[in-house]
Design a protein around this nucleic acid. Sequence first.
DNA 1: TAAGTTAGCATACAAATGTATGGCAATTAT
DNA 2: ATAATTGCCATACATTTGTATGCTAACTTA
Lengths: 207, 207
Amino acid sequence: MQKELTTIQKSILDFLIDQIKGKGIPPTLADVAKHFGYKNRATVQQHFQAIEKKGYIRKSPKLSRGIELTLEDKFFVPRPILGEVAAGNPLTIYPDAIDTVKLPTIARMPQDSFLLRVKGDSLKDAYIFSGDIVIVNPNLEPKNGQIVVAILDDAAVVKRYYKKRSEIELVSENAEYKPIVIDKKYASFKIVGIVVGIYRSMEKKAG
Amino acid sequence: MQKELTTIQKSILDFLIDQIKGKGIPPTLADVAKHFGYKNRATVQQHFQAIEKKGYIRKSPKLSRGIELTLEDKFFVPRPILGEVAAGNPLTIYPDAIDTVKLPTIARMPQDSFLLRVKGDSLKDAYIFSGDIVIVNPNLEPKNGQIVVAILDDAAVVKRYYKKRSEIELVSENAEYKPIVIDKKYASFKIVGIVVGIYRSMEKKAG
DNA sequence: TAAGTTAGCATACAAATGTATGGCAATTAT
DNA sequence: ATAATTGCCATACATTTGTATGCTAACTTA
């Protein structure tokens, strides 16, 4: 269980996420200081130490821009999208958001598709495996039969989508798995987007 | 129109892509120098300048790790599919491109690689399915257990490769298909290349 | 009251980093 | 034959960057 962040620490973490997901590379101490109007890098330095102590980031000592996020390792690792479409954070899983809302929140809506690297094998029913990169379009209305990414009770699933009268059915490709039926009013359910493609690199998978 | 990169410049660009895509943040001059065994950062500096001049990267002056790739301004790059390849029973290969796919730029195409569309389901236990696009690199030596594309009697197959004493075994993941054993001296057999990546488009699969 | 946390500042310093310049050998192009 | 490019090295330098230390102030907690 991670400790609570203060308001300022949280806003700094938000800025970190913003930069890492949006611009692609982590900021320096000076960058952060400039953004928040600090006259001194040491101020940021201390905030980083506090945030790291609380377990939200990991730092590589002496390495410029050596900041990693420890969050959102759960199911997806968002990949930076390049160019003008770079829409930051497709899927940010804030621990405190889970605690209160019981639902990972989508912080920033990309205008177009984004990439997610899949972690874990919770999606293997749809023949998507750990390490695969899925291309997700969050701006399309799911049609019956399309493969969607959904969050259901803090778990991510990729399944075929079928809309019924008052409920939604998520069907696995694998016949051994029974369809999941969700009432439309169910709170802990959210469609993240539609999977439009999958890419898998074989380079490390010899054998 | 971009100018050609030299061999060394290309390998440096590959390293850049590797780091940016893989590790998430661009390397410093020192990082690159160390990786290639250069005793001096200035060497890398000059290579960067050359690569930038040829239009493959963009640099932010005075900024540490300030390297951006210019390649991926486009999310998808059209690529010709050279033919169809059988994962089950051999199929004939077409001389000309039969189709094109828009390949995501995260799917790295090494030079001389080409695309083939898989037909049949004998590789489905390797999670490659009919309709998938495989990226084939013809310049790599196959290692045991790797998935290769091979020509056998004028037909192409995709299977796992195992080298034995005097023969080569091509194994399907699907137990329904028996391994193909080829004597090394057999003339009508040729390894086309190694499957380095897979791309699957979901767009036409709705319903 | 005393101790701790949070939030900011200033200063100092070593190391990392990007950059500029010049030199040299090998190759390629004109 | 000469010029240009490529590939690498060395040295030097100004910034940038991360880090360490100490100081002040406000607020919270024990």
